[in-house]
Amino acid sequence: MKGIFSVLVENRDGVLSAVSGLFARRGFNIDTLAVGETENHEISSMTITSTGDQRTIDQIEKQLNKNVDVIKVRRLSESKSVCLEMMLIKVSCTLANRAALIDLCKMMGANVLKVAPKYMLLEYHAHPDSVEDFIQAMKIYGIIEIQRTGTIAMQK
């Protein structure tokens, strides 16, 4: 099963390493990890997604709660929260198929940031599943480079 954790942590040295290290030490998977400051610059927010059986996901929550620098752990359910991921993707294209690619981007809601003779640079943000779909769709054209932010999530 999938676990989505929204974690508020103290914004100080070593906290990111403590949290990511916890996953490594205890053999938990990190699928994605996104970190940023909150409105209070002393507090950061992390969204961590992980996969594992029920017991593992429960353990992750308990172990996160044990960390002194963790202020609050919230487990989000996919149905009751908004999950979003942003991606920058460089796709190769030629003069011949450029128009088709632009049409596809329009249809899917991706933004064209740069058009070069041999490639296009696109920005796409959506639910992580849609991001996966978009990547599949781009494979036909040939993917040169991808940068993904990882999932960020918030309870509705």
């Binding site: 040295d13 070593g14 390493s17 403590a18 290290g21 030490r25 002194v68 620098d69």
Partner: peptide, 14 residues
């Protein structure tokens, strides 16, 4: 040293 001690303490401070 705080990095070294991280997995074997409740908490580390520099």
């Amino acid at each position: 040293s705080t990095g070294v001690m991280l997995p074997i303490t409740k908490c580390t401070f520099q």
